[in-house]
């Protein structure tokens, strides 16, 4: 990797690396925690490989993934219509909605280097115009489904350890365990988004595109630094 490549892709490389390191940390800590519970119940501890393919690890991973993708899906989708005066996370106050083809550089307004599906009309332009929200929303739904499936297995393993009957998937998705895991993640994501929208009205981070320029007025909307 050349220095230029690293400079031009630093954001994705840093977050990708951070993700892998954090996942390793979760695997190690989760393995220790799981084995502590097993030993406490008089069971044999399991190896790291067995833990990494266990439903317990999978549900802990997927319950966080679904909420993160939901957060970004909502942010992408809701900010088409909902505005916030003074926030750099909002569009200007007269631009609610999907905007005109001219504003969005599609069809006859597309520049020469525009993606092909933005230049062509019909279903391809319609799909491409919503592709970011569709993919983020799709990953959210798949992660949530994965949480429900792996959560059923993890919940049932604990049920059997507690000498209780296992439940089916349809029972699990109405169970308190599933919704507790779901809501505890959703509330934190929604709080973080709401905080970002409001705090960025009044506070600044010099040089960050997520902030308004330091000297921008609190009432300036849709301005990024």
């Amino acid at each position: 990797m050349t220095p230029r490549f690293l400079r031009e892709n630093g954001l994705s490389l840093a977050f990708g690396t951070g993700f892998l390191l954090a996942l390793c940390g979760q695997a190690i800590a989760g393995h220790a925690d799981f084995n502590n519970a097993l030993v406490s119940d008089g069971m044999e501890p399991i190896g790291l490989g067995a833990y990494l393919t266990s439903s317990d690890f999978a549900v802990d991973v997927t319950e966080n993934w679904q909420s993160e993708y939901l957060q970004f899906f909502l942010y992408i989708f809701v900010t088409v219509w909902l505005l916030q005066r003074g926030s750099p996370e909002s569009k200007e106050l007269d631009k609610a909605g999907p905007e005109s083809d001219e504003d969005q550089l599609v069809g006859e307004h597309a520049p020469a280097d525009a993606p092909r599906w933005a230049r062509v009309g019909g279903w391809r332009q319609a799909v491409y115009s919503r592709s970011l929200a569709l993919v983020m929303g799709g990953i959210f739904l798949l992660s949530w489904l994965a949480q429900s499936v792996t959560g059923t297995a993890a919940y049932n393993e604990q049920q059997l350890r507690d000498l209780q009957a296992p439940v089916g998937w349809t029972q699990y998705i109405t169970a308190a365990d599933f919704w507790n895991r779901t809501f505890q993640n959703w509330q934190s994501e929604l709080l973080a988004v709401a905080s970002m929208v409001v705090l960025s009205i009044y506070l600044r981070q010099r040089g960050s595109p997520e902030s308004k320029p330091v000297g921008a007025a609190h009432t300036a909307t849709g301005v990024e630094g």
């Binding site: 439903s55 792996t150 089916g168």
Partner: peptide, 20 residues
């Protein structure tokens, strides 16, 4: 085998759910 396992044909998840 439990109904939860039978009802779900999510092959990619089979390893982690103990189904299959």
């Amino acid at each position: 085998i439990s109904r939860g396992c039978r009802g779900l044909l999510v092959t990619a998840l089979a390893v982690t759910t103990g189904c299959g």
